[in-house]
Simulated assay, not measured.
Amino acid sequence: MTNLRITTLPLPSLSNDIIYAAKCAAVIGSCIFSVGYLQLSIGLYGTNHYFLSHFFFFLALPFAFALIGRDEISARIGIIVSSIFHFGYEFWEDQLDRPSYNLDWDKIVSGGAGIVLAHVILKKMFKLEVEKLARNA
């Protein structure tokens, strides 16, 4: 059986809160900027490049949960909610207005890649925070 370790970070100072919020906001902001820039330059909606918006949206969404909750549990809830929303929409809701069951694999894979990348970044971020708190203790 694996040892599941959940890290809750009541961060010890306001400066750490600001740094944590800045990290999450930087990821969210860069995703918003990237989608905005791509929409204005090559256009995303209704084009072959629309899968990029799925990648950036599902990369940013777990960070919004992590920013609000400020702990690893909130980040994991964000990953789960993002996965349910993305795959539920692509495999079920998006198919309701189509005459036949036809999957958009580019959107499915790019959204899934965004969720996986968000998980990797958040896991590394919390690991670094725990190591920093252990050094300071």
Rank of each mutant, 00 (worst) to 15 (best):
F85Y: 08
L11G: 01
I18T: 12
F126N: 03
I108N: 04
A64L: 03
F91M: 06
H119S: 06
D17F: 15
I19T: 14
E72T: 07
L11S: 01
V116S: 07
D97T: 15
N102F: 05
E90Y: 09
G111H: 09
E129Y: 12
Y45D: 14
L14V: 11
T2V: 10
R70I: 10
Y101D: 03
V130H: 13
S41G: 06
P10Q: 10
P12W: 13
E72C: 05
A25L: 14
S83P: 05
F55S: 08
I68C: 01
N48V: 11
F57Y: 08
A25K: 12
L11K: 02
G88P: 12
L44C: 01
E93S: 02
A134S: 10
F58T: 01
I42C: 04
L14K: 10
E131L: 06
C24L: 12
V35M: 10
L103S: 06
V27G: 01
L52F: 10
F85V: 07
A75V: 10
G46S: 04
I77L: 11
F87C: 04
G78A: 07
P10W: 08
A64Q: 04
I108A: 08
A64G: 06
G88C: 12
A60V: 14
L128P: 11
S100C: 00
A118R: 02
G69C: 15
A21G: 10
V120G: 00
A75T: 10
A25Y: 12
Y45A: 10
H54V: 10
A60G: 14
P10V: 15
G36A: 14
F51H: 12
K23N: 02
S15F: 15
G112L: 00
A25C: 13
W92I: 13
R98D: 07
I32L: 08
P12D: 05
T2M: 00
E93A: 00
R5H: 00
H54L: 03
E129M: 13
K107D: 15
L52E: 03
G78I: 06
L14R: 01
F85W: 01
V120Y: 09
S83L: 00
L52W: 11
D71L: 05
K123W: 15
N3A: 02
K124Q: 12
K127H: 13
L96D: 05
R98C: 03
L128M: 07
L117M: 02
G36P: 12
Y37I: 09
V116I: 13
